[in-house]
Amino acid sequence: MELRHLRYFVAVAEGLNFTRAAEKLFIAQPPLTRAIKQLEQEIGAELFIRKPRGLELTTGGVYFLEQARQILDKANAAVNDTRRIAENRKTVFAIGFVPSVFYGQLPLMVRRLRRNKNLEIILHEMKTQEQVDALKAGKIDIGFGRVRIEDPDVEQELLFDEPLIAAVPAGSPITRHPPSMTELSEWPMIAFPSSVGPNFTELTQGLFHRRGLRINVIQRVNDLQTALSLVASDMGFTLVPEQVKRLQREGVVYMSLEDDNINVPVIASRRQGENPNSVMRLANTILAELVENRLAGRYP
C-alpha cells in the first residue's frame, strides 16, 4: 500500500464521486477506479457501496477514512518538520491549546522553552478533540484543553481544576454581589457553539441543566474576544475560566460565583506509551513546577 493510494481514497471518500476526485487529483478516472479497487482487494474489504447516482462509504470505509487522514497528516507533518529542522537545525516542539488556557501558565512555559536556542516552538490553537487527532497524527507533541476525550492512543493528565467566573457588563445590577447560578440563569447568556463530542459549551451549560435551571442563550460566538465584546455591549453575561480575568476589557467586570465548586479542568494530553525525549522531559519539568505554583496559590 502506497501513500498515493491513501490520497486517492481520501479524495474519493470526501467527494463520493470518481469523476470529481479524478479532476481534483489531476489524473484520469479509469486509473483512479482501478487504484481504489486494488486498495479494497489489498485490505480485503469493500470501502464503498457503488450506487447508480454515486458512492457511499461502508462502515469499514468510514473507519478507514479516519485512519487514512491520520496517516497522511502524520506523513505531511514528518516531511514539514524534517524540512524545518534541516533548514534551521532546530528541534521542533509543537503545542496545541484552547485559547482560554493561554492567559495563565502556558505562556510562561513557552517562554522558558524558548530559552533553549536549539528549540523551535510551534503553537496551534485547536479544540481538545482536534488536539487528540493532531497528537495521533504527529502534528503536535502536547495539548492543553478542557474536556476528557476517551482514546486508547492518547493519555490525559488533569493538571488542576480552575474556577469558572462570570464576565458581566460593567454597571449591571448583577455586579452588586457574587451572583449565584440561579441569578445568572435569569440573565441573557452569550455562549459558544456546540460541536460533536465533549466541549466547553457542554460543560458550562450542563452546570445550569444539572441544577434544573433553564438558560436564555441570546447569542453564540466562535471566540472569547467576541464574547467579551458582546458582554461589554451589555448584551448579556458569559462564563469563562478564572485565567481569563487577566484579560482586562473596558466595560467588562469579572465576578466570582456564589456557588461552590463551579470548576472546569485544565488537561494535558500526550501520546500514550511514548518514551519522552529530552524536550518532552524539559516541558514536563517546567509544567510540573507551574502546576505546583498554581496549586500552592503562587499564581500564575
Rank of each mutant, 00 (worst) to 15 (best):
Val252Glu: 04
Ile215Met: 14
Val231Leu: 11
Val231Lys: 02
Leu257Gly: 13
Val196His: 12
Ser195Pro: 01
Gly236Phe: 08
Gln243Gly: 15
Phe237Asp: 06
Val231Gln: 09
Asn216Met: 09
Leu203Cys: 11
Leu257Arg: 13
Arg220Gln: 12
Thr201Gly: 03
Asp260Val: 07
Thr182Leu: 06
Ile190Tyr: 06
Arg210Leu: 04
Val196Ser: 10
Glu202Phe: 07
Pro193Val: 07
Phe192Ile: 05
Asn222Asp: 12
Val221Glu: 12
Glu186Lys: 15
Gly212Gln: 11
Val240Ser: 00
Leu257Gln: 13
Gln205Met: 12
Ser185His: 09
Pro188Gly: 14
Leu228Pro: 00
Val252Ile: 04
Phe237Thr: 03
Gly206Ser: 11
Gly251Cys: 12
Asn222Gly: 15
Leu239Ile: 10
Arg246Glu: 06
Val240Arg: 00
Glu250His: 07
Leu184Val: 07
Pro188Leu: 13
Thr201Met: 08
Phe237Ser: 01
Ser195Met: 15
Ile190Gln: 05
Arg249Gly: 00
Asp223Lys: 15
Glu242His: 15
Tyr254Glu: 02
Pro198Phe: 03
Glu258Ile: 14
Val253Met: 10
Trp187Gly: 00
Pro193Glu: 06
Val240Gln: 01
Pro198Thr: 12
Trp187Asp: 06
Thr204Pro: 01
Pro241Trp: 07
Met189Leu: 13
Leu247Val: 03
Glu202Ser: 08
Asp234Val: 10
Val221Ala: 09
Ser233Pro: 01
Gly212Thr: 14
Asn216Asp: 11
Gly197Val: 11
Trp187Lys: 15
Phe200Pro: 00
Arg249Ala: 11
Asp234His: 14
Gln243Asn: 09
Gln219Ser: 14
